[in-house]
Design a protein around this nucleic acid. Structure first.
Lengths: 237, 237
DNA sequence: TCGTTACTTTGGTATGTACCAATTACTTTC
DNA sequence: GAAAGTAATTGGTACATACCAAAGTAACGA
């Protein structure tokens, strides 16, 4: 722990202590109230709050105030466990809302990844997933109609892994995953109940059959404070 | 792309465009200069710069100014490729500096992970790794002396994976990896040539033998803008 | 030529103020 | 008791200003 004399660092450390020791739970006092108790300017306080936000200790909701973060969801993108499955296993109450489903042409990134030309047909869905009533991830799934005929005829609000397995006989697949930190902008930020420019984690996934032919391209935009990526594997040196 | 009327969002988008189109490379003009060209207050400008920083487009160096980020390093924590190996494969010039090596007792986190008691002996090293002269990650490696006898007698500035393989016969190992976003504080922030409270990615790794006995506990603190986690795997539904 | 000194520029920290829009809490009305 | 309207509170945006310490630069002297 750093012991610096700057005001924002001191406030940050006091609040960190109060939060980790659970003296502070639920919602924080208002910014102006905290300014008064620490006797600092509001911009200085907001600098401290911003760092606590980056640490994943607190988050802001709309314009209503600052709240202590609930514990993080552990997520292994390499497992094909369903959202319902791994959230409930960790004691969360999951829910999913389908925002949009449409057929469209691929953007350049997807066209490259799926080796399609710009006139190909994609079935694209956008959905928001929440745990305990808190939106944590926006998913954008894109399926190649060429490789998955009539995929748009099925109910994609149900389990898609079951659909791929039973209807399209994809029992084994290859995954290419990328994880990087990012900024969340509108309209995605709004779907996650956060602000334009908030910090996020972006997970990109390309799904291929065993011949290496890619048929699905996914983008997941996570609240950075809601997520811990976990991975278990056996390796050879 | 969001089209909002806020000053900081407009500046953010102008600079984003200039950077992605490579009209802006190397170092940015000084903050006061940028304030003048955009005709905004310095705090507003810094809000925009902070978001560009979160996006991984720019970074600051000491007190010398803002710079456009070089391209990200792709890193697969599940592969046991050496740093030298995967950086050069991507066209980077890697280097490593050993900061410290010592024997010590485990903290509670490590004691729990390695199933040791608090009086056990650990060989612990701290090193900074750079690409193209830019420090990107601080590594803290911890080896259990009980499971790796005399590990402290070897030169740990050389390849450790070779040591584990040849000397300790660990050809196959189990990896438990966790990735989450974090804040970088001093003294780690200083080693990464960044500021106290900067954004980072933390990678935690537990290495076990095939019996599940853990003998190594690593913590990696990455500059968030230097890194893209990549993962390739074959899965069964 | 090289190292030291003095100066300027730069980002980092901090304060205070102001206004807006959305949320929240309260009061009134039906 | 529920709905509608009103007032207060709150975070979000934005400005101007000030000072400091470190980094960078130019002038100077050995």
């Amino acid at each position: 722990m750093s012991t610096q004399s700057f005001a924002y660092a001191q406030v940050r450390e006091v609040l960190t202590k109060q939060i980790t020791e659970q003296q502070l739970t639920g919602s924080l006092p208002s910014e102006r109230e905290l300014c008064a108790t620490f006797d600092i300017a509001r911009s200085t306080l907001r600098q401290a709050l911003g760092q606590l936000e980056n640490m994943g200790l607190i988050y802001r909701k709309n314009r209503s105030g600052w709240y202590v973060c609930p514990r993080k969801l552990k997520y292994d993108p390499m497992q094909h466990a369903s959202f319902l499955q791994y959230t409930t296993a960790q004691g969360f109450q999951p829910s999913t809302e389908l925002i949009e489903q449409k057929k469209q042409k691929p953007c350049r990134e997807i066209a490259t990844a799926l080796a399609l030309d710009g006139r190909a047909s994609l079935t694209s869905i956008l959905r928001v997933r929440s745990v305990d009533g808190r939106a944590v991830v926006v998913e954008n799934l894109n399926f190649s109609n060429k490789h998955l005929p009539n995929i748009d005829k099925y109910d994609l609000s149900l389990s898609i892994s079951v659909l791929l397995k039973n209807t399209y006989q994809h029992h084994d697949v290859l995954y290419d995953i990328a994880v990087e930190s990012c900024c969340l902008f509108n309209p995605i930020a709004q779907l996650l109940d956060t602000y334009d420019g908030a910090l996020g984690l972006k997970v990109t996934r390309i799904v291929r059959d065993l011949n290496g032919v890619a048929f699905e391209f996914d983008r997941e935009y996570w609240r950075h404070d809601a997520l811990m990526i976990e991975n278990k594997a056996k390796l050879q040196f």
